[in-house]
Design a protein around this nucleic acid. Sequence first.
DNA 1: GCTTTATGTTACTGCTATGGATACACTAAA
DNA 2: TTTAGTGTATCCATAGCAGTAACATAAAGC
Lengths: 135, 135
Amino acid sequence: MISSTRLAVAAHIVSVLASRRGEFVKSRHIAGSVNTNASFVRRILCSLTRAGIVEAEKGKAGGSRLVKCPSELTLWDLASALGEERLFAMHANPVNPRCPISRGIKSSLGKAFAGVENAAHVQMKRINLKDLLPA
Amino acid sequence: MISSTRLAVAAHIVSVLASRRGEFVKSRHIAGSVNTNASFVRRILCSLTRAGIVEAEKGKAGGSRLVKCPSELTLWDLASALGEERLFAMHANPVNPRCPISRGIKSSLGKAFAGVENAAHVQMKRINLKDLLPA
DNA sequence: GCTTTATGTTACTGCTATGGATACACTAAA
DNA sequence: TTTAGTGTATCCATAGCAGTAACATAAAGC
C-alpha cells in the first residue's frame, strides 16, 4: 500500500528547521540529520517552499527556514504540499460493459476510498508538527 | 503514497462473488469482470481464502464463493486479509546519533502515523461490502 | 481409469516509481 | 572575483507491481 517515504522525510526536514527556528539551515545539514543526500532534501524543500511553508535564500549565506510556526503546521499541510494526499489506488483496468459489477464498482469504491481518506485527512490536520519535536 | 491496487481488485472480486452468492465462481470469470488475468485474481483469492472470507473448490466444478455475508464484510477485512493495513512509510535511513531530531523523529512520527492509520481503520470498518453492490 | 478443467503456487518479464548520485545554471555574500 | 549555497535536470540501481506462462494437485464426468 505504501511506496514513497517523502512525507516522513518532509516531517523530518521540518522538524530540523523547527529546532533552528529563524536560522537559514543548509540542505547539507538537514541531509546529515536525515542521513540522505542533499539533493533529495532540496527536492522536498522545493515543494515545501512552493506551498509557502518554507522560504529559501540562495547564495553563500543561503539555506531554508520555516515561514510558519510549528504549532501552525500539521501533517496534512506537508502531505498536501507534496501532493501525497491519496491513500488508495483504483485499478486501472478498463470496465467490462457487460458486467454490472464492473460498471458500478469504480464509482462506489471510489466514494468509499474518499470517505476513508477524508477521515485520515481530518486526523492528519490534528497532528501538529510541534508535537514531533523532542520535549 | 499509493502503489498497489490489490485492495481495489479484492473489493471488485468480492463484489462479483456477492452478486452470485452461493455459486462457485471461476477465477476466469472474475478476471473477465476485472479485466485482468485469472492468475492475478487467484493470487488475491488465495489471501481471501486464508483469511476465511472465501472458500474454494478445486476440480472441474470448482471455483470460489463467499463464506460470509457481504453485510458482515468491511473494507478493513479485505485490507487486513491482504496485509495492506499500513498507509504510511517511514524512511529507512539510519539515525544520526549526533542529532536530537534524528534520534527522536522516528518514534514520534511513527506514533503520529499510527494515529492517522487508526482513524482510517475505524472508517474502513464502517464501509460495508454490501454498499459497493449496485442497488 | 482417463480426460478434462478447475485451483494453488511459482517463476519470469516489462514497466514504473523511488531515491541516490552527479552536474550545472543561477545567485548572493565575502 | 571567488566561494558556497539553492533550484533543477539527468542518469542509475533497485524494488514492487501486475501480466503471463507453467505446472502440481484435485475433483467431476465419461
